[in-house]
Amino acid sequence: MIEAQTLTKRYGAKTAVDSVSFTVRPGRVTGFLGPNGAGKSTTMRMIMGLDNPSGGQVTINGRPYAKHKAPLHEVGALLDAKAVHTKRSAYNHLRAMAATHGIPNSRVNEVIELTGLGAVAKKRVGGFSLGMGQRLGIAVALLGDPQTVILDEPVNGLDPEGVQWVRHLARDLAAEGRTVFLSSHLMSEMALTADHLIVIGRGRIIADAPIQDIIDGQSKARVRVRADRPQDLLNPLAGDGVSSQILEPELIEITGVDPRRIAETAQRTGVLVYELTPLQLSLEDAYMQLTQAEVEYQSHSLSPTTPEATQITIPVEGRRP
């Protein structure tokens, strides 16, 4: 269990993390989502006692990280895959980390096996690829068999097989009753792994809810309708907060009206409706909507594109393999 209370970090005039409060509970995967520069890493570094908060506090299992007698058994963290001496081998790095807690070499070998580092464990970390570095970081995080696991962008640089392995690992750890806190700037990654989502933008929490709620909360009802006379259907529906798009002569998308009202209107006006499909907003879209105002670095496309062309909706039910 991780509890942050009005946690703040300022660097000079810039506020990286602005009075955030949240709780990360055991038994589920909590995603920490935000665009680059939103304050995810800074928050995680404060959790692990690397950065001193400018205000507020954060505790793990009831006390600040540094106050634990056996911190590696409480929390395992991958914050930065490069936090390793490049001239030391992975095996010796793990051995040195383990020694601080009297963790036996047998556990070092276990985590090497678990993270698939066996073939490169005796090689210098300096020659590691980003993916191998991530695996070593995860090996360190698991060393103390901790109750809480914190992983900052764990799938960065991993091959597709490695990405899937991290997803399963996170889900298995949560299933064992552990607290799993996972950051990413990729909504699609969160959609596949997380149960609960904390969204951060420009140092402020903009959403803290189950994934499903975030999707529901952000999306207005959007309905795809096939009808013989779309215009006759749209005219009576027009009103505040209602918008529509004619995609094909007999295919329209209506936003802001629930499906029942459309059906009622169709019945009243005598318009033939042969498809009425409620659409769900993709998590990606929901995320974009949430963070649009909060993005630190906004990119602009070079050529004007129609927003419809880039909007791909995936049904959320199928988000987990």
Binding site: H101, G131, M132, R178
Partner: peptide
């Protein structure tokens, strides 16, 4: 890398939590 990661992802069969007698000493 992919060849080495067929191991079960579960880190341990034991219940999570600190082990007795282990912790930081000078």
């Amino acid at each position: 890398m992919s060849a080495h990661t067929t191991t079960s992802p579960s880190p341990t069969k034991n219940a999570p939590g600190p082990r007795a007698g282990s912790g930081i000493t000078f």
